[in-house]
Design a protein around this nucleic acid. Structure first.
Lengths: 190, 190, 190, 190
DNA sequence: TATGAATGAGCTTTCATTCAT
DNA sequence: TATGAATGAAAGCTCATTCAT
């Protein structure tokens, strides 16, 4: 084994570029982040970036693909596996919130959909998957509201909650914040 | 009097610049929009922009101030005037949604908080006002959940709802969509 | 009249860019000439170039089109109008040589077909026209040799003659050089 | 002895670099060809090139020296050895044309004098040798035209003939094309 | 008010070259 | 000999801004 397998086969430098780009793109946007910014924070020169990515666009494409897939897998694995809708919604809120707290750059990157919009990736957000699931639950009569409203409430609440948290406007402990959000959304949808 | 006083003393051209800038900034971001883009869509040359605004930054400052104040006034006028929390929340959802449908560029501009963040305006979003109101309701025992969660659910849901709508993913008529969202959020918070 | 008509409607600056680009491209090639080189010799900054041409490629496209058309027109007007093949060949040599001496940058630009080749314009050289003419003369039995050989001798001789001249290797007066070349080529082909 | 002596001591890899460089330089020019282009076509990495040549310039210097010497030797050996001018000219055309067909990259490289000019090698073309020879023939009264015109016709015709051939514009068989060119040039000069 | 040419700084990208392995 | 990551300078191009008209 040489430490290079599958999608994780990039070198430490490439990995660092990815992490820094994720952070900067999610905070300053695609146009607002320069290759120089990334290079400086990675500790290499601008030219060196191009040994790992053919263009700035390729970096964001890679990030969009990788990060949205990561969250999708997480949702499939943790949320859709549950039996009742109630448990699914509870798990969805928890999964999204935990993801946001653990990987704030990734979550912010996906949330700040402006970045994605700039690059024509709107529909790749995991939103599509969740919407489909809500539609099925709606057919089965388990969902109190229409799928579109359910998605808006479930996902929108988490997104705003994370922004408030990042702004330092939340006076509750992390776990309590998540719990309350879970209960609130569950009570609204199920 | 010639119809031009104070800050509202802009000429039709200035007005057109503002409208176009709002549209473009809200869609392509601050850095993603060039003075040339704006000038072209307004139908003037780049230099002419500078007859009306001293710099690109001044344009976005003007927009942030104007648009956020407009929504604030609307909320004060339509929402905070209501008696019960239930009616306030119902009115908040309706007001935000109607605003979003009537002035999508303005709403998108405020929502895509990335743009604001780029320009250090995070805290000027009307969120602050609503949060204060929720805090008071919480003190009075009218709010079932903590103010932070309430704000997240109320505002986040509307933001996501608008995005879904813009993406063409909503299969309900406008009024029905708003009504359902109202009921859902009210049932969750009050 | 405002000094702007037809294809010559470019500003003095644009005209200067064209002249300088022609000179530099013909001497140092397309890749060997930088926008900075051109800008410096024109006496403006690099950015200013782009107000007149959208890209470096657009400059060479313009030159290829303009210069090759110019020579084509000249040939149509001075050469093809003649009656006998003998007179046509005499006129061809004279026209090409005079053009080369009067507009060395243009002639060199067309001759150094490497530049054209780099840009996929091989077939736009006036060679095509002349070849067609030789083919018709060959059919009529006026041409002693095959059209391909005739073209090679006629055009190739002039091209080489010009290079020798530019290298300072020719010890004849201009007119005598042209005359001798005329006689030689005519005697070979007719 | 190991088969590696003097300037010819290059390994197979070095030989491949030379061949590829000759091909690419002759087609895309010196500036238009990158070390990466060469490396890729040779099948090695960019760094490896520098094991064989100290710089990009050294490669083209080597090529100019080697290729022009090769053609010079050929001309000395095949052309100047002949008795009469007529036979010399016939042989010159044949030698150049055969060389062009057998080693098109080499001939194109020498012909596209633009490349040489970029590198200050103008006068090293075998043209000098041939011109000297024509001058002597002129003194002896064997040459009908001045040496400069003779060189222009003899060499220019071959150069143009090769270009036409490469463009696929020649409808004669190779041998017939050469023969006709020989006869035409001989009849013009002798 | 408006134009449009120009500036100058900064951007993305390229590329010859170096160097540790 | 060869690799491949990295450098650093320079390339083409963009863009906010200025200014003469």
């Amino acid at each position: 084994m040489n430490g290079k397998e599958g999608i994780w086969a990039y070198t430490p430098t490439k990995e660092r570029i990815i992490k820094v780009a994720l952070k900067l793109f999610s905070r300053k946007g695609f146009k607002g982040t320069t290759i120089k910014d990334i290079a400086k924070e990675v500790g290499i020169t601008e030219g060196a970036i191009y040994r790992h990515f053919a263009s700035k666009e390729k970096i964001i494409y890679f990030l969009i693909t990788t990060v949205s897939r990561e969250l999708e897998e997480l949702i499939k694995e943790k949320v859709f596996i549950r039996g009742s809708l109630k448990e699914q919604v509870k798990s969805l809120i928890e999964t999204l919130m935990r993801y946001a707290f653990e990987k704030p750059d990734s979550f912010r990157f996906l949330t700040v959909y402006h970045i994605l919009r700039e690059n024509g990736f709107e529909k790749r957000l995991p939103g599509g998957l969740i919407l489909e699931n809500f539609k099925r639950a709606y057919m089965r009569g388990e969902l109190k509201v229409s799928p579109e409203v359910a998605l808006s409430v479930a996902v929108g609440s988490v997104e705003r909650a994370f922004i408030l948290w990042e702004m330092g406007l939340v006076n509750l402990p992390e776990d309590r914040f998540i719990e309350e959000l879970q209960e609130t959304v569950v009570s609204a949808l199920c």
